[in-house]
Design a protein around this nucleic acid. Structure first.
Lengths: 233, 233
DNA sequence: TAGTGGTCTAGACCACCTG
DNA sequence: AGGTGGTCTAGACCACTAC
């Protein structure tokens, strides 16, 4: 073995993880202090801190000032769902993407939508219905409402070529969103768009989006029958 | 305004985010170097680095050595799903939790399972079916297979009182998992357990788990009708 | 080859929390 | 009151990569 260069935070992080997985440090038990670990590993305390901070972000350990660092007991695991634009999602499957605008109208926000988005009464919204196809098979039915006050430019966009999701992302990036996933029976109209029978179980994603506290859009995405969403942690 | 103490990495992070959201730095544009920013903010480069690193982890900016830091263009947003033990999930709803073991048997792994988990042919697995109730209403149907070779102690556990998820978490913590979410029609048996009609759309979570490259368990969780999974980003 | 981000160090001070 | 993690600093060297 050659004389090691330096101890990296990855080294520390991986070794600590190894000891936790190997039950050298059991669940709930107290780890040595950063000071002690930095001496053991022959590195600066900042390096240990960086390593332990990453493990804490992953939920592997719990840290508290004064009381120290403990191995987490009933970890709430975090799975990361990657949410990308539908076109990109389809192209990553090596399928050809096709988009179609079904309808476009400006209406006063219905009551349930105003409540859902936190809109003032009588706010005007743009209501869009679109379809996304992968290799010419129905992939996703998009039912979207956009708060016109939040996106004035919206009147100029006709969405005949580009979906509203891509359009919005280019203009209102990095917003906050709340997502709900569920399983629903296909209504007759949506079923026909997706080439499924009425009542077929469909995967539904609903998303509300805000930009700087202002409600921007609410969208209901019905995926084709048999769609599966995957992730790791 | 008082003489500010020090610039924190949060200050830098929030100000950079503000400039991105305010289109001062537009999508795809190049940010100043860490050196420049540290001078502007009057702090150390390490502080700027920490701030930009967090934004990069969130997908807000892209960083490359030599070429610099750019505002991300079509960000793949990451939503974090919190996955906790069913009991905990129910108790957080302020509902009473009840668990019931439906069946328990040791069998050779069926072909589809061996393929799914990457098990050797003829591996022995423990097959469990359990129910979880919230306020005595069916909440989740659990159909689980456990690789006996990976968890030898399993023979001693009868799971009449505690669900296998909690039992496993206490013994095989911090494993890797792959999750699939989908929408399925309730089969007759599962429907009856969940108090729903056959064919009802149900939210299904399937999860494969490994510990140090070794397959541990595969579980199929059917949630009650109308279940919704929520997250933010 | 030179510029940029990635990381480590050694020391310091602070904030929070438990005893 | 004191111990522990949280953070900042100033400087240094390294790794990657566009030029």
């Amino acid at each position: 073995m050659q004389p090691d260069k330096k101890t990296t935070y990855q080294d520390v992080r991986d070794e600590v993880l190894r000891r936790i997985q190997g039950r050298i440090w059991d669940q709930g038990s107290l780890l040595p202090t950063e000071q002690d670990l930095s001496e053991e590993f022959g590195c600066a305390r900042a390096t240990v801190n960086r390593a332990l901070r990453e493990l804490a972000e992953r939920g592997i350990i719990d840290r508290k000032r004064k009381s120290g660092t403990r191995v987490a007991i009933a970890p709430v695991k975090q799975a990361r769902l990657e949410i990308s634009v539908t076109r990109q999602q389809i192209e990553e499957m090596n399928a050809s993407y096709r988009y179609r605008l079904v309808s476009r109208e400006i209406v006063p926000a219905p009551g349930w939508l105003a409540a859902q988005m936190g809109l003032p009464a009588q706010a005007q919204v743009l209501h869009l219905i679109c379809m996304h196809y992968a290799d010419n098979r129905p992939f996703q039915h998009e039912n979207r409402w956009i708060n016109i006050d939040a996106v004035p430019d919206i009147a100029e966009a006709d969405f005949s070529d580009t979906g509203p999701n891509e359009w919005l992302l280019a203009r209102v990036p990095f917003s906050d969103a709340e997502i709900t996933l569920s399983s629903v029976a296909a209504e007759a109209e949506i079923a026909s768009f997706l080439g499924a029978k009425e009542g077929t179980p469909l995967f539904l994603m609903e998303r509300s989006t805000w930009f700087q506290e202002q409600p921007v859009t609410f969208v209901r995405l019905h995926f084709h029958q048999g769609y599966r969403m995957r992730t790791r942690y």
